[in-house]
Computed example of a mutant assay.
Amino acid sequence: MIINNLLLKLKDRSPQNIARAREVLLGMKGKMEVLVELTVETNIRSGPAAYDILLIAKYNTMEDFEAYLIHPVHVEVGKYIAGVVESSASVCYRA
């Protein structure tokens, strides 16, 4: 199992904007066979070093993860996220 954790810090950190970004990310659920599981959580503790959203995505293989990255649904969501994100961090690992 491949697990990718993505942290997002948004430019506009208002609760409404965070909720909208979460909704957009969750919109990928069930639309790609290669995406086994998708969880999107929002941070409950604010602060300058805090990130706003944690996305946890699971794939059966690294090839599935690579296919996800270029999938049209992911590409569209990525365009939205690119417009609202200030910074991001990612950790991808085998479990």
Results as ranks from 00 to 15, higher is better:
Glu86Gly: 09
Glu41Asp: 13
Leu26Ala: 08
Gln16Arg: 02
Ile44Asn: 04
Asp52Glu: 11
Arg45Lys: 13
Cys92Tyr: 11
Ser14Pro: 00
Val40Met: 03
Gly30Leu: 00
Lys58Val: 04
Ala82Lys: 15
Met28His: 02
Lys58Gln: 09
Thr61Tyr: 10
His71Gly: 04
Val24Glu: 02
Glu66Ser: 05
Arg22Ala: 06
Glu63Asp: 12
Asn60Met: 08
His74Thr: 14
Met1Ser: 14
Asp12Arg: 08
Ile44Cys: 11
Leu10Pro: 01
Pro48Ser: 15
Asn4Met: 12
Asn60Glu: 15
Val34Pro: 03
Arg22Gln: 13
Arg22Asn: 05
Tyr51Ser: 06
Ser14Cys: 09
Val91Thr: 11
Asp52Tyr: 04
His71Lys: 12
Asn43Lys: 05
Ala49Arg: 12
Ala95Glu: 14
Ala49Gln: 12
Ile70Leu: 10
Gly78Cys: 08
Ile70Ala: 09
Pro72His: 14
Ile70Ser: 14
Val91Asn: 13
Ile3Leu: 15
Thr61Ala: 14
Leu8Phe: 14
Met62Ala: 12
Phe65Asp: 04
Ala21Trp: 03
Lys31Ile: 00
Ile3Arg: 13
Ile53Ser: 04
Asp52Met: 01
Val75Met: 11
Lys11Ala: 09
Lys9Phe: 01
Met28Pro: 01
Leu25Gln: 01
Ile53Met: 09
Arg94Val: 13
Asp52Asn: 09
Lys11Ser: 12
Gly30Trp: 11
Met1Glu: 08
Met62Gly: 11
Ser14Asp: 12
Ser46Gln: 07
Ser88Glu: 13
Leu54Met: 13
Val85Lys: 04
Ala50Tyr: 00
Ser87Trp: 12
Gly27Glu: 02
Lys29Ala: 06
Leu55Ala: 15
